[in-house]
């Protein structure tokens, strides 16, 4: 299954948030598309991103690398990158790489959009 991407804007107590809904498989082949999307958003001035990974079937280290790259970019503008994920098999990859300490991971898009910490 290929990668699907869609974005929408939502408002939270901390201001506007751009939600990037990702579906399908993020791997060495598809990760560049996600990278392009994140780079484009930051270049267009969206510095507070919520990446919704509920529709993701597969994630590997290439995908992790792209998310870390996205985080680095938004942080350069004092922005934020929050993840939404409840799938154990995806969460496991964040845990074994220690990235649960790097990304705020939320249970729902609403929770991520409303987070202000």
């Amino acid at each position: 299954m290929d990668l699907s991407l869609s974005t929408r804007n939502m408002s939270g107590p901390g201001g506007d948030r751009t939600v990037v809904e990702v579906g399908g498989e993020i791997d060495v082949y598809t990760a560049p598309k996600l990278r392009e999307q994140l780079v484009e958003l930051v270049n267009d001035g969206s510095y507070h991103l919520v990446v919704d990974m509920e529709g993701v079937d597969f994630l590997d280290s290439t995908g992790l690398g792209v998310l870390v790259g996205g985080l680095k970019r938004v942080r350069a503008h004092e922005g934020s990158l929050r993840l939404v994920c409840n799938q154990e098999r995806i969460l496991k990859i964040f845990r074994i790489t220690g990235l649960t300490k790097v990304f705020p991971i939320h249970g729902s898009v609403d929770e991520a959009v409303n987070a202000t910490d």
Partner: peptide, 24 residues
């Protein structure tokens, strides 16, 4: 370096891949 790295974002990807394998 990892191939296709546009600006060094994911230069450590290769090692992250091995880290994932050894963690799994």
């Amino acid at each position: 370096r990892a191939s296709g790295a546009d600006d060094g974002d994911d230069g450590a990807e290769d090692e992250m891949g091995l880290a994932v394998i050894s963690g799994l």
